[in-house]
Simulated assay, not measured.
Amino acid sequence: MNLQDIIQLIGNVGFPIALCLILLQSILVKFNKQMDGLEKRLAQLDKTINMMVRTFDTNVSNTSRQEEKG
């Protein structure tokens, strides 16, 4: 959004409404960035949990095999 667009927006809808629209745009941009960061963190968490479950299943299988032998 360049200066000419902002001046035209103020002329068309008034200063308070134009300011609200500018603030809304900046809030939405920040919100989208935060959502992208959360999405990446959730993907990493999902990978970590899956790895922990596989490790747990492997340990349980090994323990049950050892008990059967012993």
Results as ranks from 00 to 15, higher is better:
26 S>L: 13
4 Q>Y: 04
3 L>I: 04
62 N>H: 10
70 G>C: 09
64 S>T: 10
49 I>W: 02
50 N>D: 12
33 K>E: 12
36 D>Q: 08
25 Q>T: 08
48 T>V: 07
37 G>P: 01
26 S>A: 11
51 M>E: 15
56 F>H: 14
46 D>F: 08
52 M>S: 12
54 R>M: 11
25 Q>S: 14
59 N>L: 14
44 Q>I: 04
3 L>A: 08
30 K>S: 12
47 K>W: 07
68 E>S: 15
29 V>H: 13
46 D>C: 04
48 T>N: 11
9 L>R: 01
5 D>N: 05
14 G>V: 00
54 R>F: 11
58 T>L: 14
18 A>P: 01
70 G>R: 13
31 F>S: 14
22 I>K: 01
38 L>S: 01
38 L>Q: 03
68 E>F: 14
40 K>W: 04
56 F>R: 14
47 K>C: 07
53 V>P: 01
57 D>E: 14
56 F>K: 15
37 G>C: 04
33 K>R: 10
59 N>F: 11
49 I>A: 02
67 E>L: 15
52 M>D: 09
70 G>K: 12
47 K>T: 05
67 E>Y: 13
5 D>Q: 09
65 R>S: 15
63 T>Q: 13
64 S>W: 11
66 Q>Y: 13
15 F>Y: 14
38 L>K: 00
13 V>Y: 01
42 L>D: 00
46 D>V: 00
7 I>T: 03
33 K>S: 10
24 L>P: 03
62 N>Y: 10
28 L>R: 09
6 I>Q: 01
62 N>W: 09
18 A>K: 00
23 L>H: 06
57 D>T: 05
52 M>H: 06
70 G>T: 09
47 K>P: 01
61 S>E: 13
39 E>S: 13
23 L>Q: 11
23 L>V: 06
68 E>Q: 14
59 N>T: 09
21 L>P: 02
65 R>D: 14
67 E>N: 13
32 N>M: 10
43 A>T: 02
22 I>L: 07
38 L>P: 02
38 L>R: 03
63 T>R: 15
21 L>D: 03
35 M>V: 09
2 N>T: 01
6 I>F: 04
47 K>M: 10
68 E>V: 10
13 V>E: 05
3 L>S: 06
36 D>K: 04
42 L>G: 00
66 Q>E: 12
2 N>R: 03
33 K>C: 03
34 Q>V: 04
26 S>F: 14
64 S>K: 13
54 R>V: 07
32 N>V: 06
16 P>V: 01
28 L>S: 07
60 V>E: 06
40 K>L: 08
60 V>H: 02
19 L>Q: 07
